[in-house]
Design a protein around this nucleic acid. Structure first.
Lengths: 169, 169
DNA sequence: GATTGCATGTAAGGGGTTACATGATTTT
DNA sequence: AAAATCATGTAACCCCTTACATGCAATC
């Protein structure tokens, strides 16, 4: 998801530690992505070395020191420049669609099982998103949820229709 | 997209060379993925070494020999087994959504530009998919196109609505 | 007494792209 | 004369995940 700009972007809200960033990603962008420490920390080190962020170490009692990162002029400029470029095409890995394409290797009831399990997952996701929408105060966060909801509903409709038509033959 | 099963899956249609596979991916799954030689050839070598496929070298005049791969019993079994498992969650990298979330760092007209360029892309894709639908004979290939069309239309509607509402404020 | 939260990181490995390297043949 | 098609592959690099490693404090 381009950790560089994910990090720079979140740091425009407030200075944060790696730990904070992970929480914020989960909170604000949980519907579309996640961030793992394994990339987060190394990326922060690189951004620091390259001068996009600066770091202040805050000692704490009986905990490791907190390393609080904030944007530099350079980081802010680079982020703005990136934001102004049109977004790159989505990179999607849809295992489900590959299986659907290869359905000729399955029996009819196996194809239905594939579709149905997918529909159940979509329904669960729809419920989660519906809950998210209620709890979202932030405007931009709201947009993300609405967008995800819209796509999720569309997929669900397609799956239901497919299920019905396929069952009839 | 899991090259392993992409390859094993396509080889159920007919024995193919790496070159053939790339063409077939573009033809049948172009709407959702692509395959690069840089992964295709090494993956084929690995599948051969692991006994999922077998290879027959076909000499040609004034061209490099063609290496035609076909499924082994083991490959076929492994594929079927994989197909029967429920599909894993989609891995999506939506640069656009990240930019949308970070829109607070942009001016109103820059946000609109982001949305509009996205809408134009979606419209182009929609046209392409509409053409694809007409040219598609294969049933499963048709499903993929329909699915992609459905999601593309849903996104387009969302974008249009957003554009309208955002312009009003 | 066990789990969650806070807080940092590294190592090994998986999966992928782009660009490079080669070179004849066929089509525009 | 230029471009596309056929046909193989490698090398360098990017990006990311999972599991591991450490350890105290607060809550349940």
């Amino acid at each position: 998801m381009s950790y560089k700009y994910l990090i720079l972007g979140l740091l425009t809200e407030r200075p944060m530690s790696g730990y904070d960033i992970k929480k914020q990603v989960k909170l604000a962008l949980g519907a579309i992505t996640s961030a793992s420490y394994g990339t987060l920390y190394p990326t922060l080190h690189k951004l620091l070395a390259d001068g996009y962020v600066e770091m202040q170490e805050v000692p704490q009692r009986s905990r490791p020191s907190k390393k609080v990162y904030s944007l530099t002029e350079r980081g802010r400029d680079d982020l703005k420049n990136w934001l102004r470029q049109p977004a790159g095409a989505d990179q999607v890995r849809r295992e489900f669609l590959l299986k659907l394409y290869l359905a000729r290797n399955l029996g009819p009831q196996e194809v239905l099982a594939l579709i149905t399990s997918r529909r159940l997952e979509a329904e669960t996701m729809l419920q989660g998103l519906t809950t998210d929408r209620l709890n979202t105060k932030d405007v931009q966060q709201g947009w993300i949820v609405e967008y995800a909801l819209c796509l999720c509903e569309a997929e669900l409709n397609w799956l239901k229709q497919f299920e019905t038509e396929y069952a009839v033959h």
